[in-house]
Every structure is written in structure tokens, then in C-alpha cells.
Design a protein around this nucleic acid. Structure first.
Length: 367
DNA sequence: GAACCGTGGGA
DNA sequence: TTCCCAAGGTT
């Protein structure tokens, strides 16, 4: 049942290509399919929806229009342009890869699987996407959309992530591929998944290949692809401090590797069980900075959801007490005292950025 | 193989 | 509010 008996594979591909050419969304990276533009868009689109990417892509291409301009940039500026998109290692890897392309490939984005895979941040999907979308090579791509579309067309009764499921999806995507049209075929499969064959409430009435969809025929569309149970989130309380002295605010840079690597943040940390956020903040400032602080007032509470955590961020204004203490930060890549207006020059995690907005709003209202 | 790495939008 | 998860890669 999970092995398709469909012996008219190219018809699926041709129908998809025709549907795509008539119905595709007008997206900036579909303008000229330049290898660099395709590359940047594919990195931005990893685990990220089209609507979120478009404004970032336009701003990025204006500032870093080609490989040399990106390679010459600093990591801090690159992260600033990525701020808010998430998964920040993508930006750091893109910069490293651009420099590698300059050194090893003379500034030209590679056009072979092996060379592409040398670039940090380019895995199996992205390499195939660049080969097919930019160079129109006859290679299939398998992303979340393709997995879902294929799982439904085939009525796949095992997880698309399982070894068997992967094989079936890749086999189908390869079989349906229209030779010479990989650029449009691959995008058609993904576009269909994004617009028609959506995870919930798929629009089967508008689907160009509904007639060949085994899941639709069997009434199993809502159960395809088969999902594996997802792990639970962890609830976290975090205290965060905007430490101010002589009109400047203390910020620190996150170390290489791990969460928010290379981004700047306000100091603070997790509140222990049965510890109030205020007590936690005073403790963390002592531990992290070696500074005794006095809390002036509470700025507010920010709720934020990460993939594995739900965080309630308690933010406080505070000052060194007594004044004039020497700051000795531990476990951060760098630190700085900056004027409030300079906060826009550094990349912060989204929750920190929201805190900065709240700070500005309060300052405007106060004066 | 499994854990880790963000965010915002929609239902 | 709460839950889902989207054009994946790295370790």
C-alpha cells in the first residue's frame, strides 16, 4: 500500500510544473535565480516561513548584494541583519562560507554537490536546492514540504523521517522529476506543500494532482504524514537586569557555540526553584559580573517561546551598589558599556529586543 | 540517532 | 491561551 503502483510518474511531474508556472507566488528570489540569491534564500528559508523571510532577504541583498560584499563584512553586522530570524548559526555559517567561496572558488558559488557540501550550513537539502534552482541540474530536493506531499500522494504509512520513509520519498521525488525542468519541478513540489497540501486543512479541491493522491482516495490525508509524538516544553523563569551607571548600560556578548552564539544580551539568569526573580537577579549579577547591585524598579515581564523552553522573563532596572565597582564578567565573549541609543548597533535575541522597546517606551513616557 | 538551535503566525 | 510547526544543519 505504501509502495505506489502509479506507473505514470512523469505525469505527476508535468502537472506540478504546469501548475507552478501558472500559480507560483511572486517572490524576490525567483527573479533571476542567481546562485548567490538562491543560496541566501535557501539558508533563510530553513525552518522558516516565506512571509518571515521576504523582508530579511530584501534588506540583506541590498546590503550584501554578492559574495565579495558578504565576505568582507563583520560577524556583528551580519548578525544585526539576521536579528529576529532565529537560528543564528545560519548567519555565522553563511559568512564563513562566503569567505570560503572567495578563497577556494574565486568568489563563484560552486555547482557540484561535493564542493557545495564543503560550505558550512549547506547540507543535503540546500546543496540540491542550489544545484536545481540556480543551475537547473536534474536533482530532486527533499524538504518538509516534499515529505508531506509525497507521503500523501503515496499514502505512506510509515514516518517520512524513518529510514524506509526517507527511501520512499526520495524514490518518488526522483521518479516524478521532469528532466530539464528541475528548477520548476522542485519548487512546484515545495510550493504545493506550502500553499495547497498544507499540514492542516489541505485544499485538496484546488490540488492539481488530487486525482493521483492515494491518501485522498483512501481518506487518510489528515493522517499523512504519520507523526511521531513531540517532546514536552520546559517552563523557565529568568531574571534579567538592565544595569546602568553614568548614563551607560552594560551588555555582554554570548560565547561561541550554544544558544544565541555571538549575539549580545543583558546579564541575568535562571531563577532557582523557590527563588524570587529579584533574588535570582542579585545572585546572578554577583556570579556573572562580580558586582553587587541594587534593583531600582521592574521594567516588565516578557513571555517568550523557544523550541524547547517557555520563558517568563522578569526584567529590572538596576545600579551598582555601591557605585564604581569594577566589572569582572565571566563566561562571555566580550562586554561593553553603551549609551541607550547605541543598542541598535548590536544584535540581540528577540526577547531582549522587545525589552529594549519597552525601555524606550518607558523613557519616552517619563520625559 | 537524537538533541540542539529561534521565531512569529495561524487555528 | 495554547498548541502547532516552517524551503534543515551540526554535533
Amino acid at each position: 500500500m505504501c509502495h505506489s503502483q502509479d506507473r505514470t510518474p512523469s505525469e505527476v511531474g508535468r502537472d506540478l510544473v504546469q501548475w507552478f508556472l501558472e500559480n507560483q507566488r511572486d517572490l524576490p528570489w525567483r527573479r533571476d535565480y542567481s546562485p548567490y540569491g538562491v543560496w541566501v534564500s535557501e539558508i533563510m528559508l530553513q525552518q522558516t516561513q516565506v512571509a518571515a523571510v521576504v523582508p530579511y532577504y530584501l534588506r540583506w541583498m541590498k546590503r550584501f548584494p554578492d559574495v565579495p560584499s558578504l565576505a568582507a563584512a563583520t560577524e556583528d553586522e551580519v548578525l544585526l541583519y539576521w536579528e529576529g530570524l532565529g537560528y543564528y548559526s545560519r548567519a555565522r555559517n553563511l559568512l564563513k562560507a562566503a569567505r570560503l567561496v572567495m578563497e577556494r572558488f574565486g568568489g563563484r558559488v560552486p555547482d557540484t554537490e561535493a564542493d557545495l557540501r564543503v560550505l558550512p550550513g549547506v547540507g543535503p537539502y540546500t546543496a540540491s536546492a542550489i544545484l536545481s534552482l540556480a543551475y537547473n541540474r536534474d536533482v530532486p530536493v527533499v524538504d518538509g514540504n516534499v515529505e508531506r506531499v509525497a507521503a500523501r500522494l503515496l499514502d505512506l504509512d510509515v514516518s517520512a523521517k524513518s529510514p524506509e520513509g526517507r527511501r520512499e520519498v526520495l524514490r518518488a521525488a526522483t521518479q516524478w522529476l521532469v528532466p530539464g525542468k528541475a528548477r520548476f519541478y522542485n519548487q512546484a513540489l515545495m510550493e504545493l506543500g506550502a500553499v495547497i497540501c498544507t499540514p492542516a486543512h489541505p485544499k485538496c479541491l484546488a490540488c492539481p494532482v488530487a486525482a493521483r493522491c492515494l491518501a485522498l482516495r483512501h481518506g487518510t490525508v489528515e493522517n499523512r504524514p504519520v507523526r511521531s509524538p513531540r517532546p514536552r516544553w520546559e517552563e523557565l523563569r529568568v531574571a534579567i537586569g538592565v544595569l546602568r551607571e553614568n548614563g551607560k548600560i552594560y551588555i555582554q556578548k554570548r560565547p561561541e557555540g550554544g544558544l544565541f552564539a555571538g549575539l549580545w544580551e543583558f546579564p541575568g539568569g535562571k531563577a532557582l526553584e523557590a527563588e524570587t526573580p529579584r533574588v535570582a537577579l542579585v545572585r546572578e549579577m554577583e556570579e556573572e559580573l562580580g558586582v553587587r547591585v541594587k534593583i531600582v524598579d521592574k521594567i516588565g515581564v516578557v513571555r517568550h517561546a523557544y523550541t524547547r523552553f517557555r520563558v517568563t522573563l522578569h526584567a529590572y532596572r538596576c545600579v551598582p551598589d555601591p557605585p564604581g565597582q569594577i566589572v569582572r564578567p565571566r563566561a562571555c565573549a566580550a562586554w561593553k558599556w553603551v549609551r541607550p541609543s547605541e543598542l541598535d548597533l548590536f544584535a540581540f535575541p528577540a526577547a531582549n529586543r522587545r525589552l529594549i522597546q519597552a525601555l524606550r517606551k518607558a523613557a519616552d513616557a517619563g520625559s
